[in-house]
Design a protein around this nucleic acid. Structure first.
Lengths: 145, 145
DNA sequence: ATATCACATTAGATATAGTCTAAATTTGTC
DNA sequence: GACAAATTTAGACTATATCTAATGTGATAT
């Protein structure tokens, strides 16, 4: 993991690169599993430098405000976090609650060509409310022009 | 508000129509403001029949399980609920956190005509992450073919 | 170098949201 | 009405997150 890159990204957002803040950011960049604050707190405290619970929450708040980290709310569960590396969306499966990353699509215009198709695929996920794993594989054998 | 309709809708989902459960459902159908559990609890207890906090939560859980009510998670805030009258999505503004209903679109296919345009408008909201009120009114004077 | 000051961190208390428990009550059915 | 199952209840409990006030740290000016 590129230490300097993280440092630059923090300072570029006006945040001091403290050991605790760095640890949170580094953990989020190494693990794209959308951990909870508690999981991040535990993980950070398995190695030096240690961080208190309040600091972990403070730093998560700061990182979210700075736009480096994204917070995802899931019904009935603790909030989850991830590093905003590539810009992307979160699709939360209505059935299993899993958070699935969705490719970012910057300029939604009247659809035509492959851009339009990508938008529509993502809409289908959102509109259906089930992730790729849970969705019934309808029309699997039908070819799409 | 149609008392019998609510009763039928509850019993059609295998739920007894108790006074407390009815009160929660009726409140959600009368107010489409996506209230929190606490707001629902308070509102129900301003009139008879009274309901305890646990019962309010129990009934919300039951109604969500039965598919009559939808729960919406919002980052850093209490969950919000609404009656699933017409099928719709929830768009949560990144800036103000407001929950905005979004028209349901049942069959997303390669876009053409007005259906495609509607899909794309909703995608634009989702992708931009700002609600109608907060979004910069870009291209306001440009006509769209 | 060191005084200073804003920013960060800390432990623990507190707040908020939601769930659990066990007893009492209500509801539908015989 | 008697019964069983579902529901409600108050309050204890758990989980998640924030606040507080004291302490520590690092950059800058002197």
């Amino acid at each position: 993991m590129d230490t300097e890159a993280i440092k630059r990204s923090l300072e570029g957002s006006g945040l001091r690169c403290t050991p605790q803040r760095y640890a949170v950011m580094a953990f989020l960049m190494e693990h794209n599993r959308h951990p909870t604050a508690a999981e991040i707190f535990e993980a950070v405290n398995r190695v030096d430098p240690r961080s208190s619970r309040a600091t972990t929450y403070n730093n998560l708040r700061d990182l979210v405000q700075a736009g480096l980290v994204r917070e995802v709310a899931v019904e009935g569960r603790a909030a989850r976090f991830d590093a905003k590396g590539m810009r992307h969306h979160h699709f939360i499966c209505d059935r299993c609650g899993q958070v699935e990353d969705m490719e970012w699509c910057d300029v939604p215009r009247p659809a035509s060509g492959s851009l339009g198709k990508r938008i529509l695929r993502e809409c289908e996920l959102i509109f259906r409310g089930l992730c790729t794993k849970c969705a019934p594989r309808r029309h699997a054998s039908r070819s799409v022009s």
